[in-house]
Each structure stands twice: as C-alpha cells, then as structure tokens.
Design a protein around this nucleic acid. Structure first.
Lengths: 287, 287
DNA sequence: GCTCTGTGATACCCGGCAGGTATCACCGGC
DNA sequence: GCCGGTGATACCTGCCGGGTATCACAGAGC
C-alpha cells in the first residue's frame, strides 16, 4: 500500500506540531495510548522512523520533517476537496441552482478593480454567484489551498503565487501615507529610505502569520487602526497606489520613487476545471 | 467532520472513472455491495449527491465532477507525501545517509544542459544524490504531483507549469529535422508553414496522454523510432535547437524562423522545503 | 406476455482494528 | 530516595469495513 489515510496524517501532524503525544492526543480529542500506537503503525507501514522519542518530549527525524510538510499539503487538498464538493452542492449539472465562487480579497486593497470586476462579471450571461471573502495576505494562500476560497486577488510581491495558476491584471506604484501635517508630506516624491527612518515616525508593522517583524513602529491589526494612527501623526505606512481611495483628510499620499511596483493577479488552484471560474478569469483579463 | 479518508476518495474515484459499481469494485479488489455502501455513506457525510444512478450505469452530478478533480489532486498529494517520506528514508537529520532527489527529464531533450547541471551540482559540497528519471512530457507533471519525482526539467510551451514553482534556465529556437536528401534540407531557414504541409512528408505525431492528434503523419512513440523514420525520408519533425546533439548523418536540421521559442525551466512542487532541492535550484540558476 | 440478464441496493454476519482504561518502564529533579 | 511526567504496553470492547446471499428493477429478447 502506498498511501495513507487522512486520519493517520491528522494524527501525525498533531504530534509533529505539538512534539508531545499527550497534548497532541488532547488536541485530537482522544487518549494518548491509541495515538502512540497509530504513529507506530504508520512508521511501520512507511518503513521509516518519523520521530525520535527522547525522554524529554519528541523530535522529528528527517523523514518526519518531510511528512510534516507533504502531509499538510495532502490534508489541505483533502479538506479542499470536501469544501468545494459541498459548495457545488445540489447543483446537478446545468439547470440546477446557480454555482457559487468564493473570491478571497485583501481587505481594502484594489477596491476599484474589485468593483469593476464584480460588475463586469455580473453582466455576463449565466454568471455564478460571487461570495467576496475578506482575508489577510497570508490567509489568501491558505484559503485557496484548503478550499475555503476558489479564487483570489493577490498582490505581488506580497503574495507568493507559488503553486497557483494566475493572470496579471494590473500594475501600480506605491505611495507613502503620511500625516497631513508632517514636513515630508509637502514633498512631491519620496524614496523608501526617506520614510523608513524618520525620527519620531516609525514605520507601522503588519503581522505575518500572527508574527510581527521587529522594529519600533506600532503593531497593526487592521486598516482603520492604521489610518487612525497615521492621522494622529504616530506612524507612516507604505501602500499600493490604489490605497488613495480610502485616505482621510488628515492623510497625505506621496509617491515612492524606488518602491517595487505592486502587481495584482487573479490566482486560482492550478487543477481547477470549473466553468464558472473560467468565466470569471476571462472577464478579469478583459478588464 | 470536514475531511474524507483517502480510502473513500479511492473508492469514489474508481466509481467515477468506471461509471459502474461492479467494475469499480473489481478494480479495487473488493465486492460490489460494500462499495455501494461506502459511496452512500460518503454522500451522506458530505450532504450532497455525487452520482445519479440510472438504470443503465451511473452518471456524475455537478458535485461529483468537482470531487472527481479535487479528489484526484488530494489523492496525488497523499501518495506524494508517502513517496517523499519513504525516500527521505532513514536519513535522520544531518549525519544520516545522503539524501536523494529524483529529477524527471524528457528523454533526449536538453542533454547538454542536463550534463552541465549534474556536473555542477555534483561539485557542490554535500550535494544530494540525483536520480535521473526519463519520462514523457505529460508524465513529468504527474510524477511531480504524485511524488515519484521531486523536481523536473520542463519545456514551455509543451509543459504546463501550472501548480509548480519554477525558474527559467534557457531559451532556444526550434529546428525542423528533415531527411538529408530532401529539397527543403538545402534551405537556410524555414517557416512552420513550410514544413507543416510538405507533400509526401507529413509531420510526425506524438502521443499526449496516450492519445494521438489526428493527421496523416506516423504515430511516434520514442525518439529512435522517429529518427529512423526521418532518416528513411518518411516524415519530418520539429524540435528544440538542442536536439541537434542526437541527429544522425542522414538528418539535416534547418532553423525555423517563426516557431515559438522553447524555454527550459527547472520546476518543483510549490510547497517543497528540502535543502537538497534548494541547492540544486541554486546551482541550476547559476549555470 | 414471459424470462433472462445485468444493474445497483439491501440484509445479515463476522473479524479486525480503532479507541478506551489501567499500568508499566524510564528518567530528571527536588 | 521518592515523585512527576514522559511515551510504551497489555488487554478489553464495540464499531465498522468487508464478505455472501439476495432483492428490486429495467431492458432486451423470444
């Protein structure tokens, strides 16, 4: 047999993440002994040792590391299959209820593009229903992978398009968003160096996967928070050009000359074969 | 529960492909009744109907189509996880036996590049062992997906890089390979139109996924076969420039002016995290 | 009309295995 | 030394995956 049950993968991932059989068992809602046994069976079936059992906890072997990554991907693929199948729901072929697509977008970004896309697509004949799912940059990729979303608007270089199919939609420059009263706000253009080291005006820090990069600036959770802090003259932030759409009166946008351009892509899982998705992509590339 | 066991996926895929419970059961090496029941349970758990049971056989519903595609991807991911874990074998961290990478290459293509790559990589400190796996164009993608290979040398536009990470390595033109005595072989350059419709010299047809495109030319299975047919003056073929390396004396290569350039990429599954793979990619891009 | 054939579904039984409880073996610390 | 916490082992039980026998139904013949 050259496959594993997803149950075994779930078990192994829990142990590999917790590095502790007891806690892993608790997380899985089961007792520790059957978990130990299941992992042993898995190791025997694969013919490799996955964990080094030390007296104090557990560590992964090389093969264990591999299974941690590959198993996560496989489990994501399985739950994606379930989610997308459920979403396709009772729609048995043409004639059934309209199909639905979940579109993951970074909250606030490319508002205008999104508007145009949704309007243009809605005008198409037999357009599917589009559910817009606001999500953070890192969530988008996860959601596409585990089936919570079918398609996403992503922004290079913030998003990695690795593993997805994508089409380029738009390229824009970046701007520095400053408090309106700040001396730098009077300038016609700035460089990254100008804004990255302003005394008394540290760059805001966004969380990635729940972790904040080190630095003096405030830790930001959502855009409104950030907008307020900028308005109060406490911080500065860098955004794609389209962010001008949501600026306040207390904000000033100054183009950045040397910031990398932001490219908006529409991205989807490479194996997708949905007609509705194909229609959306066609609409998007024609915008 | 929002996941499925791979066993259930295997069962469903068998039925969805055969569209016949009896044959599917036979293929799975089990009896038909438990298979019927398993599919019913799956449908109940997912809360959607996957199959329309008609008196004569079975057809897929919309949701069934989705699960057919998504389930295949998930199952591939699972078997890939097993294969790669097994390959990582007893290597428990640094100090264990050297890790191994499986490189899928289109037999015959980019021989020179492959040579240079292997030599350069072997010279690296702690290089992994590279197993070269000859495969057809379409097999490469499958193999990367289901874990039989870790990395591949692919050729755009023949390969689709969808779903993989890749780096560009080389671009080359294409040539027409003609029988040495043929009138066209005297020309300095040709266009696609020149070779696609030569009386008495039909273009050879390669199989894609076991299917041959329609046309008058001979059906080709391997390169030697083709080389012989060209030498005999029975057919003509179009190849990347690097194919000159294996031409016979009876062959003549003529550059094609309007054929799309062939770009060789090194491609790998997007979620790969292997150090050995990273080293190989680094070596490749530095060539 | 009948039967015959081939379809998937149902009824029922059995064995294996997933999961639970109780306990062990081991080691590090105070 | 004992104690607390680790993962492994022993043993039991009930569920469920799988098998066999059979049914219900629809078409194709005659």
């Amino acid at each position: 047999m050259d496959t594993v049950e997803t149950r075994e993968l779930r078990y192994f991932l829990a142990v590999a993440e917790e590095l502790h059989f007891g806690r892993a068992a608790e997380r899985l809602g089961m007792a520790q002994p059957p978990l130990s046994r299941a992992i042993q069976q898995l190791e025997r079936r694969l013919g490799v040792s996955l964990l080094k059992r030390n007296r104090r906890g557990v560590t992964l072997t090389g093969a264990g590391e591999v299974l941690l990554h590959e198993g996560r991907a496989a489990l994501d693929a399985a739950t994606a299959a379930v989610r997308r199948t459920r979403r396709a729901g009772g729609a048995d072929g043409p004639g059934g209820p309209r199909s639905r697509l979940v579109l993951a977008v970074k909250a606030g970004a490319s508002h205008e593009l999104l508007h145009k896309l949704l309007d243009a697509y809605a005008a198409e004949p037999d357009a599917a229903e589009i559910e817009v799912l606001p999500s953070s940059t890192c969530e988008q990729e996860e959601m596409l992978r585990d089936g919570r979303a079918d398609v996403a608007l992503m922004h290079k270089p913030f998003n990695s398009l690795a593993g997805f199919d994508s089409e380029e939609l738009m390229t824009e420059g970046q701007i520095a968003v400053l408090p309106a009263g700040h001396p730098l706000a009077a300038r016609k253009a700035l460089s990254l160096a100008d804004v990255s080291d302003v005394p008394g005006l540290p760059l805001a820090r966004w969380s990635r996967h729940g972790v904040y990069p080190p630095g003096p600036g405030p830790e930001i959770r959502d855009q409104t928070q950030l907008a307020q802090l900028i308005a109060l003259g406490r911080t500065v932030a860098v955004f794609p050009d389209s962010a001008r759409a949501w600026l306040w009166a207390e904000h000033t946008a100054v183009p950045l000359t040397d910031a990398p351009p932001v490219v908006t892509h529409i991205a989807w899982p490479a194996h997708s074969r949905s007609l509705a998705l194909a229609g959306l992509i066609r609409t998007a590339t024609r915008l």
